[in-house]
């Protein structure tokens, strides 16, 4: 049997909101809890960015999934109750337009007839990320990784899909996800490049210390057509002051 240390949790994820009371405690039931910046879209579990910061303490991911679910459930119910109109009141044309958009995206991928193979691209992406964007990170390697991802994005457009079936077509759904993986790989790589310090599972030998003065903040990436845009938000430490992690 082969043993290899593999990624088994994604620290970071979709941005979600929460509501805190005057003492800094979370207001259970608030429809803001676990709601993303897309109104009505909630995220709970590994998919959200909350709770873990730059590292996840052992065995705490399931805990945060449960906790997030317990907050998100009532939040969603209360959000739905507070709505002035339900989806029944939304004109069918809205859903129809979205269906057309999705079908068009599917059709575009079915029509890809280049020379690249999506599964090969995926393997190469994995190798680049494992070699350059794992725990130990160097700025020159991160920059090289971003250049490599941009080259993959270019090659993605020249994929040969091999399968235009409209039934159980794994090649198309994989290729669609592969594009999202490329977008996300850039977020992770460029976010790491900017953060010149070491924190949690982000270790830069050239910047070995944790630098709370400059970097005790959350990286926020926003999608734009020309690549991710970065902002930073303060970390809420009103209830618990951070200490050095010494194990």
């Amino acid at each position: 049997m082969r043993v290899f240390p593999s990624v088994h949790y994604t620290m970071g994820g979709l941005w979600i909101d929460y509501e805190a009371d005057a003492s800094g405690n979370i207001v259970a039931g608030s429809p803001r809890n676990h709601q993303t910046n897309i109104p009505g879209l909630f995220a709970a579990g590994e998919v959200d960015y909350e709770y873990h910061g730059a590292n996840r303490l052992g065995a705490n991911s399931l805990l945060s999934c449960f906790y997030g679910g317990m907050l998100a459930g009532p939040a969603m119910v209360n959000y739905a109750k507070g709505l002035e109109r339900s989806c029944d009141a939304v004109p069918a044309s809205v859903f129809e337009a979205e269906r057309k958009r999705q079908e068009e995206a599917f059709r575009r991928i079915c029509a890809l007839q280049g020379t690249e193979n999506p599964f090969v691209l995926h393997k190469e992406l994995g190798e680049v990320m494992t070699d350059n964007v794992a725990v130990v990170r160097y700025n020159d390697k991160l920059q090289a990784a971003d250049n490599a991802i941009l080259a993959f994005m270019d090659r993605w457009k020249r994929i040969d899909i091999h399968d235009a079936a409209t039934w159980a077509n794994q090649a198309v759904s994989f290729t669609r996800q592969l594009w999202n993986m490329l977008e996300l790989a850039r977020v992770i790589t460029l976010g790491a490049l900017r953060r010149d310090e070491s924190r949690g599972s982000h270790y830069k030998p050239d910047f070995p210390e944790r630098n709370d003065g400059e970097w005790l903040k959350t990286t926020l990436a926003t999608w734009t057509p020309s690549g991710p845009e970065f902002r930073y938000a303060p970390v809420d430490i009103s209830l618990l002051r951070p200490e050095a992690r010494k194990y």
Binding site: R2, N117, F119, V120, K123, H162, D163, A165, A168, Q170, A171
Partner: peptide, 27 residues
């Protein structure tokens, strides 16, 4: 040290039969 899944993954990276015929990646 391959298993049948990693073999299938290899097939879909090059979905051509031994006769050289282009085919769909196995599902």
């Amino acid at each position: 040290k391959m298993n049948v899944i990693s073999a299938l993954m290899e097939v879909r990276r090059h979905p051509y039969t031994v006769q050289g015929r282009k085919t769909t990646p196995p599902v």
